[in-house]
Amino acid sequence: MKRIALFGGSFDPVHSDHINIIKSCKENLNFDEVWIMPAYVNPFKTLSTSSVTQRLDMLKIAVKDLDYVKVKTYEISKQTSSFTYDTVKYYKTKYPEISFSFVMGSDQLDNFEKWDHFNQLIKEIDFKVFLRKKDFNQKIVDKYNLQTFEFENNFLSSTKIRNLVDLNLQIKEVNDYVNNNLMYLYERVENKMDEKRYFHSLNVGQMAMELARLNNYDLNKALIAGTLHDIAKRWSEPQMKEYLKKYNKELLKEPKPTWHSFVGAFHLKHDWLFSDKEIIQAVYNHTVGSKDMSILDMIVFCADKISSERDYDGVERLRALVKSDLLTGFKELLKNQYEIAVKKHSKTTIGKGLTEAYNFWIMEKN
């Protein structure tokens, strides 16, 4: 008789420990197949933070090399809270010739007896419990004579991944998908960015995308770089100083108001594990520019200064200029920034970055 493991959960996102459990089902427990069953909404969670399509996409990426794994959409297609009892009854009725077991993590043991129709469910199917934490509810295991198994455990959780913890242990292709779709954005910035800065960032992303469209540039890259440009803007000075000391001490000599652009780039590279160098560079250059400005750099630099909520004198003229000619608009914005900085401070204190950018783009190029 064919043996199949049913593996349910939110998978928001799927991560390497999910995959290691799946591999153990095949290699150590000798299941013929593993059927992954993403829930539309977990009954013990109020909402999912990603769309159904995104979670399915990530699952397909994660299991693309595992031919014994199938992603089943029965629970998702119901578009309501999913109950394991209903799912088990459905599959056992539809495939009476198959022997099913249900795979769960030990972190679910505390709520196990609260599952819908629990008394019938525990008689309907046997459970395989994988030990995801060192501490688990041994009383429940003993009470229902559950089988427990160890596996190659990174001690990951979807919550950790959403909050940028242990991303180095995550599946790279899934992490790239998350980054390229700006997933979990609010969770990742909610304690580090006030509401005003958050909505400014969203506006800059939209403006960057509009400028990308006008300049035949990649819309998604522009959206990402624009949205994330101020990712470190509201960090504390000690925290920014720590990053600059770690990744480039020379930048400590730059004016403090510019630090967030450098720190933001380092944060995306080393904490979000962004692999797109152009996006990282655009965040790095968005405040004062540089001699080596790419199209994306100019797009984000300009979008930051003409985003929809900006209402300073002359901003409408500058918006029109940037939209009609990106390079000319960039130069005008850079010149304005330099002149304002010199007026407020002095040529000797505005920083090497702004001075070099101004001398190259305004003095040499004109």
Rank of each mutant, 00 (worst) to 15 (best):
F330G: 00
K335H: 13
Q337W: 11
M298K: 15
S324H: 09
Y338P: 10
L318I: 09
A303S: 11
T328E: 10
Q337G: 15
S324K: 11
K291D: 07
H286F: 05
Y312F: 12
L326V: 11
R317Y: 09
K344Y: 05
D304F: 00
K291L: 08
D313M: 14
Q337E: 14
S290L: 03
Y312H: 13
S308A: 08
G289R: 09
K344G: 13
S290E: 02
R310A: 08
K291R: 10
G329T: 06
A303L: 06
V288I: 09
T287L: 10
E316K: 10
G289L: 06
I306V: 09
S324W: 12
E339G: 04
V288G: 02
T287V: 01
V322K: 01
V342S: 13
T328F: 00
D297K: 04
S294K: 12
E332H: 14
L321N: 14
K331R: 02
D325E: 10
L321P: 12
K344T: 09
A341N: 07
L327Q: 00
I340E: 08
V300W: 04
A320C: 10
K344D: 07
T287H: 01
V322L: 03
K305V: 06
V342Y: 09
K344W: 10
V288N: 13
F301S: 04
E339K: 11
M298D: 00
D313G: 13
E332S: 15
S294F: 14
L321F: 11
V288F: 13
M293D: 05
V315C: 03
L333I: 08
I340T: 15
F301Q: 07
V288K: 09
S307H: 11
L296Q: 08
D304C: 04
L318C: 04
Q337C: 14
S307M: 14
D325A: 14
V300R: 06
F301V: 05
